[in-house]
Computed example of a mutant assay.
Amino acid sequence: MRKRFSTRLLMTCAALGVATGVLLIPAYLVMTVLMTAAPLVVLALQGAWFLPPMLALALLRTPGAGALTSTIAGLACVPFTGYGWAAVGMGLMWGAIAELPFLLTLYRVWRAWLFVAGAAVIGAAAGVPTYTGYGIDQMAPLTQAAAIAMMPLTTAVFTVLALVLAKGLAKAGVAAGTGRDDTAEAV
């Protein structure tokens, strides 16, 4: 494992963080407007917060890259959403959580199945506090079932999107010179 981040790696994380942060701004705005009126729509967007860390982890395969990129994505959202500095905290939280499956493998396994399975498990776990927080426990049973299925599904879908984007960015040479371990199992 790398002991420190190179300048190129830091700049790559910053660029990915700002780019994905810009993509999160509409999700924050939709979440603000529809949180009480249409919680299932908000739940469908919850996986968007997995895009920054999973993209960085898939592209760079470096411990901490997901948390750093996701925190920068949150920072990019601060002036454009009603969440202010809480967006940075959300970014850090989602980024750190996204790193857990890779931490469990000591950052030695970078297979697509680990990305998707980890995201689905984390999405299901994140659904627990969301269940009562969004008032889903007060809704019709069919709506509750949809909500329960939505969290692991949305995190997995956005993770697959991150994997596709990472593959394209890697082909374009975005990860070149970052010290990415090219001998690791590829995504």
Rank of each mutant, 00 (worst) to 15 (best):
P79I: 02
L100A: 14
A172I: 01
P63T: 05
G64Y: 01
G74H: 05
I136P: 09
A176F: 08
V22Q: 08
G89E: 14
A170P: 06
R108K: 15
A27S: 12
A48T: 00
G74E: 02
L169H: 05
G82S: 14
Y83S: 10
M31W: 07
M31A: 15
L59V: 02
G173H: 01
P52L: 02
G47I: 03
V33L: 15
I72S: 12
Y28N: 02
V18P: 07
T154F: 11
T7S: 08
G84P: 15
Q144L: 01
P79N: 06
P53F: 03
P63L: 06
I122G: 07
M151I: 13
M90H: 12
M54E: 11
V18S: 05
G173Q: 06
R111G: 11
L163I: 07
R180W: 03
F50T: 03
A125E: 06
Q138A: 06
K171R: 15
V160M: 01
T130H: 13
T155V: 09
A124I: 11
T36Y: 15
G17I: 01
G21K: 00
A58K: 08
V187G: 07
P152W: 02
L51V: 08
M54V: 03
T132M: 10
R61Q: 15
Y134K: 08
A65K: 06
T132S: 10
A184G: 10
V78P: 08
P63E: 03
A96G: 10
A140L: 10
A120G: 04
L40H: 14
A44F: 13
I122S: 13
V22N: 06
T69G: 04
Q46I: 12
L68I: 05
G168F: 08
C77Y: 00
L57M: 15
A176Y: 09
V128N: 04
V78R: 00
G17W: 03
A15C: 10
E185F: 15
A140R: 15
V78A: 07
A96W: 05
G168Q: 13
T130F: 08
T62Y: 03
V160W: 07
M31R: 07
P101A: 09
Q138I: 05
P141H: 11
I148R: 05
V128P: 10
T143F: 14
A37G: 14
A19D: 09
V42C: 10
T159Q: 09
L100K: 07
G135C: 09
L57W: 03
A124P: 08
W110G: 11
